[in-house]
Amino acid sequence: MEVDKDHIHLLIQYEPKMSILEIVRLLKQMTTFHIWKQHEKYLSKHFWKERTFWSDGYFACSIGNVSKEMIQE
């Protein structure tokens, strides 16, 4: 994982039977739930309309059989 000012980079290994959309949806749902659970007082002051955290969009690409070191390079 690498964090930037307005986005994150994740390098994940997943079963080919799952779609990228399913994975992204799960990651966003689970992280939103846990972030809200831990920081509800603070977040409810800034996100009073709905409990969102992530934007709708995402970018994904597949790397195949390349090592983690090669990607980092």
Rank of each mutant, 00 (worst) to 15 (best):
M1Q: 11
M1D: 06
M1R: 07
M1G: 13
E2M: 07
V3F: 08
V3Q: 12
V3P: 01
D4T: 08
D4Q: 15
D4E: 09
D6K: 04
D6E: 14
H7N: 04
I8P: 07
I8A: 11
I8W: 05
L10I: 10
L11H: 07
I12R: 04
Q13P: 00
Y14K: 03
E15R: 14
P16R: 03
K17N: 14
M18K: 15
M18D: 08
S19M: 10
I20F: 04
I20W: 04
L21D: 12
E22C: 06
E22G: 09
V24T: 03
V24F: 01
V24C: 02
K28N: 05
Q29W: 04
Q29T: 11
M30Y: 07
T31E: 04
T31H: 08
T31Y: 09
T32D: 01
F33M: 01
F33G: 00
I35E: 02
W36D: 02
K37T: 01
H39L: 03
K41M: 00
Y42I: 11
Y42E: 14
L43M: 12
F47D: 04
W48S: 11
K49W: 07
E50I: 03
R51L: 06
R51E: 10
R51P: 04
R51S: 06
R51Y: 05
T52C: 11
T52A: 07
W54G: 02
S55V: 15
D56F: 12
D56V: 07
D56H: 13
D56M: 08
G57T: 14
G57P: 09
F59I: 05
F59R: 09
A60R: 10
A60I: 09
V66S: 13
M70N: 08
M70I: 12
M70P: 00
I71E: 05
Q72D: 11
E73V: 00
